[in-house]
Computed example of a mutant assay.
Amino acid sequence: MSDTFTTKQVAEHNTVENGLYIIIDGSVYKMDSFVDEHPGGAKILKRVGGKDASKQFWKYHNEGVLKKYTPKLKVGTVKEEAKL
């Protein structure tokens, strides 16, 4: 099941204890169970927890990495928010 989150809701999940969500290209990924497996180390994931990590992700990864882990880690998408 895929849920919809606001950026504020994602920001609340900014630690491993809170679920450690990150945003990549509008999709929300739950990373708490992956931090110890991450080849780049847990530190970088913890640094971007609760935030949009698209820029950092694409700097070091290709589309194949996203396709590989999406089924396991994606929990939803970011809801469009009204801009004032």
Results as ranks from 00 to 15, higher is better:
43 K>V: 01
41 G>S: 12
48 V>S: 03
29 Y>Q: 09
35 V>S: 03
28 V>C: 07
27 S>P: 03
67 K>F: 02
40 G>P: 05
14 N>F: 06
28 V>P: 02
6 T>W: 00
60 Y>E: 06
13 H>A: 14
20 L>R: 09
9 Q>F: 05
57 F>R: 09
62 N>R: 14
71 P>M: 10
57 F>Q: 06
73 L>D: 01
20 L>M: 08
46 K>P: 04
50 G>V: 05
10 V>F: 04
48 V>F: 15
53 A>F: 02
63 E>I: 02
42 A>K: 15
5 F>S: 13
5 F>M: 10
3 D>H: 12
40 G>M: 08
59 K>D: 07
3 D>T: 04
76 G>C: 05
29 Y>S: 10
46 K>G: 08
40 G>N: 07
63 E>G: 01
67 K>T: 00
52 D>P: 01
18 N>H: 14
40 G>L: 12
44 I>S: 08
39 P>Q: 09
43 K>M: 11
23 I>C: 06
77 T>P: 00
9 Q>I: 04
36 D>S: 14
13 H>P: 01
46 K>R: 15
29 Y>P: 03
62 N>D: 15
82 A>K: 15
11 A>D: 00
12 E>K: 15
24 I>A: 09
33 S>M: 08
42 A>S: 12
39 P>W: 11
1 M>G: 12
39 P>Y: 10
27 S>H: 02
81 E>P: 07
5 F>E: 04
82 A>M: 13
14 N>K: 11
12 E>A: 15
27 S>L: 06
34 F>P: 08
56 Q>M: 14
26 G>F: 03
51 K>Q: 02
47 R>H: 14
60 Y>I: 00
47 R>I: 03
43 K>F: 02
53 A>L: 08
52 D>E: 06
58 W>L: 09
42 A>M: 08
1 M>D: 09
61 H>Y: 09
80 E>V: 05
83 K>M: 11
74 K>C: 05
37 E>N: 09
40 G>E: 07
6 T>H: 04
41 G>Y: 13
4 T>P: 00
82 A>D: 08
7 T>N: 12
9 Q>W: 02
50 G>Y: 05
76 G>R: 05
4 T>N: 09
21 Y>S: 09
66 L>R: 07
37 E>S: 13
17 E>L: 11
26 G>W: 00
84 L>G: 13
36 D>C: 04
38 H>V: 08
80 E>A: 12
34 F>H: 14
20 L>G: 07
74 K>P: 00
16 V>A: 13
49 G>D: 02
27 S>K: 13
83 K>W: 10
38 H>Y: 11
39 P>H: 10
61 H>E: 09
42 A>N: 05
80 E>P: 00
23 I>T: 04
70 T>W: 02
25 D>Y: 07
44 I>T: 08
6 T>E: 05
16 V>I: 15
